[in-house]
Design a protein around this nucleic acid. Structure first.
Lengths: 194, 194
DNA sequence: GTCTATATGGCGATAGAC
DNA sequence: GTCTATCGCCATATAGAC
């Protein structure tokens, strides 16, 4: 692993934890056991380093869901598997998820375009195809967004939801959440087409 | 308006925009036309100022939805009105919304407890009561969370969702989103009880 | 309560040796 | 490609006058 890769790998974690202004070049240098000057050899400035870090973090997420789309089964089963995979990624790669949250907070238009038209485009389209199969007469964009929204929310708001009355331990189990979301959506589709 | 209130009011906006480490005491002082030392007269340190800012921002949100709960109408109508109000608050008070996002990113357990058991408790309970009416045999906590999750996501991810194929201008109209969410949920309830 | 002045240290970034 | 040393600036926070 090259120094540059080592820097980027550490930067994903640290930017995710502390944010752009919360992480200093000195702290990053310490974490990768290099001098600050060495980092500046690989990246022109802090902002360029951040951008490359985000790109690096999002690069390998394209093909995570390939097994879902290639799998055999009904559309209902595929939706269930997609939601499961989505929750899995968010739980098992919290740094990626936090970087994503920070990107949405900043909502820089150029970077949104990069993410929307580049990184996540294929996945969103495949998801739209899937919901079109399940609910042909509804707005696919809205429904695909709803799938993502429900999944993201249950992960992101777990720390808060825990503190509301009615919370149960199973509410933080991915499989349980996935089942709830899938059932909610499939029931909705059923009613609409009936 | 006292100096302290002026500081807190400005701090809500600036912390929401720039985050904790992104806002310096100098910048805040400049914004309220006071010296840095004057701010330190009112708050022991930056962290205490931040905490008080969050509390101040969340203080008056308790009774925003009172008109919804006091209104006459069926449970279906109330759900629709609640979702409308929720979207309205998030769109019309973006600073509050961004502060909330930042709080969820940090997810400090103590502050989550404060928010969950204090500020938002009543609203969440009332929402649970409402969904219990609509779907008595389902998990009210999960359903209430789903209402909040769908609403939050469509606001928060608008900058990204715009860049996916299939997006239409009406997808960022609160009334349109509210209708979609309400229909989705009510359809789901219908299917389940059928 | 607010000011000016200042202490102390961390920040991003660079120079120049190896 | 990495280092040590350093520049100039801005950060949080305080002292003490008014």
């Amino acid at each position: 692993m090259s120094s540059k890769e080592k820097i980027l790998t550490a930067a994903i974690i640290l930017f995710a934890q502390k944010g752009y202004s919360g992480l200093s070049m000195r702290q990053l240098a310490l974490a990768v056991d290099l001098s600050v000057a060495a980092i500046y050899h690989h990246f022109p400035d802090k902002n360029a380093l951040y951008l490359e870090t985000v790109r690096y973090a999002f690069a390998d997420k394209e093909q995570v869901f390939d097994q879902v789309w290639q799998s055999k089964g009904s559309a209902e089963e595929k939706l269930s598997r997609f939601i499961h995979s989505l929750l899995d990624v968010m739980i098992n790669d919290p740094n990626f998820h936090r970087l994503m949250q920070r990107e949405m907070l900043e909502a820089n238009p150029e970077r949104m375009q990069l993410l929307g038209q580049g990184v996540f485009n294929t996945q969103f389209c495949l998801l739209m195809e899937l919901v079109k199969e399940l609910a042909p007469d509804q707005d696919a964009h809205l429904l695909a967004s709803s799938v993502l929204g429900l999944s993201k929310y249950f992960i992101e708001y777990q720390p808060l939801l825990k503190n509301f009355p009615g919370w149960k331990p199973e509410h933080e189990m991915p499989a349980f959440i996935a089942t709830h979301i899938t059932t909610l959506l499939l029931n909705s589709f059923k009613a609409k087409t009936a």
